[in-house]
Amino acid sequence: MVYSNSGSIIISVKELNAWYGEKKALSNINIDIKKNSITAFIGPSGCGKTTLLRCLNRMNDLVDGFRLTGDILLDGESILSKNRDVIELRRKVGMVFQQPNPFPKTIFENMALPVKENFGNVRREKLEEIIETNLKAASLYEEVEDRLDSSALRLSGGQQQRLCIARALTINPEVILFDEPCSALDPISTMKIEDMLMELKQKYTIVIVTHNLHQASRIADEVAMFYEGQIVEQASTDVFFSNPKTQLAQDYISSKFS
């Protein structure tokens, strides 16, 4: 473990550069993500924060013309090496997207599919137990317990997003990536999800992309600010908001907070 410098660091990004075709998206990124904490990626649109997030579970593999150099370590092992099993990686690093994306199936089927696919044939009682536990963890259970067999698409936007979080929990990931999970939601739904995230960090490591500085300041332990493909400042949340070192961060914070 050459790069690992602390037992509490779960993800370590080293010298990462990324391109979409000819366009450079990330330059020289170095960042460590601490275990059981919430790390927020902030910065203006198009600054590369989502790109980095999607590198962490290799979702960018789907994008034509995407390539990168450098390395990302998960528990000290490279996730970019050729013989790395992407599926196994994604089981460890779950993801919740900006748009709620439940499958056009029942709530129960949405929850059961990843369990069945990842753990094989699970007994019915066990399956129901997993589903119940995770729906509760996503504080959705009370709202849907009597309509598990109705379509997930009939839930409200906030409920759908919490279902997606619950679904992501079913496969016991170590890290969960959130890509602006509240941007499509109303303030009350947003609050519910923020509360949930604070709960979840007891068990999981959370990385969240957000353009909402209030949100970052409310929930994050660590903050990394991106600008034009680079991390301009990273610090603990308290330090970042009370005493930003760079002019860019100062400007960004003041403009967003004013």
Binding site: R90, M95, P114, E117, N118
Partner: peptide, 18 residues
Amino acid sequence: VPHRYKEASLALGLSHWR
């Protein structure tokens, strides 16, 4: 089929084929 279904599924650890 919306691309987000595919992303959701892949992010849940399903292989492309599954």
